[in-house]
Design a protein around this nucleic acid. Structure first.
Lengths: 203, 203
DNA sequence: CTTGCTACTTACTTACTAGTAAGTTAGGAT
DNA sequence: ATCCTAACTTACTAGTAAGTAAGTAGCAAG
């Protein structure tokens, strides 16, 4: 690896941007190499194929999310703090919601995606789902949260809502993720954001 | 229009299938013409461009959803019946959830989509949102439904959940839309499906 | 100082893309 | 009978896609 130029890292980074903005079939090597000031063959030097590049990209995103969630876990905080961490991750990952998350972008071309990509994307969803399920379980058991639906379904519904909101936002143009998260807070805490953030700050 | 062969209709129909399965950039004219036993030029005869074909396709999907929702409306049924109609539409539109909805597929390439497509897709979302908001308003006013969040946000969250669930399903492989809808029922009716479908049948 | 490796480049190929122009065919109207 | 038009076809073009093969610049070790 050339540590000074870090062309490889820049390629992954630019490809991630493009995937989120246009989907797998929506960008070409020219869209990567052009802005980076390298040639298409440089991409092929680092990645055997577009699929290989894409695999690494998903793996990197998974690492990012995993490091975030494990960081919340390690903090030893309450379920409330854990879920607020997830909310923060979602908001931070796409502040203006102009782009999709890598998974949302990949889902479209998913059937034709290489097995390695499928596998990692699946893993990413399963890990997040398992983590969120645990947070809901603990949150309910400790009396921090209140809901009827089973934790596993709650986790799936939360992930779906965030994912879907981002998709709809892209078409409608209205940023609504903040309101959606607020809606979820009301649902699980029965409080407003002000109440809850005060809670978190106090903890 | 050739009413016997209906090539034009078959083209739109096949394109819709392909859009849902692979996204806008994921299929070519060959994928349409091949199975239909016509030549690519036949597509160009009916549609000036891929964007034009896509515009018609979205318009057709909008008509479908519009006809469904207005049908529920015209039925003069309760808000419960209206929302159950929406649930039915979602389930019916994609029984096995192997494909995305046309909007979810388009969202990926949305920035580069032609203005006509953007406009109609936006309209489709706004119409559905307005209709669902009204259903939630009426449902709450008439005491059929019970929730804290404002109806407009409820509508957005429901649409997001359905949309997102379909996206996640595509990656994880698990069909969960039925459970998600069940979760929503519990949330707004505080009942199980059995209770509620009995309700609907009785009405 | 030359050998060898990393990180590329130049120059190319094959395959496919949307789209076009001109010609053909079948059936209905005149 | 012929003319017209709708609904195509054949044959093509220009552009772009991913991917490849062979060559090279710069640096580090022996």
């Amino acid at each position: 690896m050339n540590e000074r130029t870090d062309t490889r890292g820049k390629i992954v980074s630019r490809a991630t941007e493009l995937l989120k903005e246009r989907g797998y079939n929506g960008f070409s090597y020219n869209d990567i190499s052009g802005p980076l000031g390298v040639r298409n063959a440089a991409i092929h030097y680092h990645f055997g194929s577009k699929a290989e590049l894409c695999t690494e990209l998903v793996e990197q995103y998974r690492e990012l999310l995993r490091s975030q969630t494990s960081q919340f876990m390690a903090s030893g905080g309450s379920a409330t703090e854990q879920i607020e961490g997830y909310f923060r991750f979602c908001m931070h990952e796409c502040p203006d919601c102009s782009s999709l998350c890598p998974l949302g972008a990949l889902a479209v071309d998913f059937e034709r995606a290489p097995d390695a990509v499928k596998e990692r994307a699946k893993l990413l969803i399963e890990e997040t789902h398992a983590w969120l399920t645990r947070v809901f379980e603990v949150g309910k058991a400790q009396g921090e949260m209140s809901f009827q639906t089973e934790p596993s379904l709650m986790a799936h519904m939360l992930m779906s809502t965030v994912q879907g909101s981002r998709t709809l936002q892209r078409i409608s143009g209205h940023t609504r993720l903040e309101a959606v998260i607020e809606g979820w807070r009301a649902q699980i805490f029965g409080t407003t954001a002000a109440d809850n953030s005060a809670d978190t700050a106090a903890a």
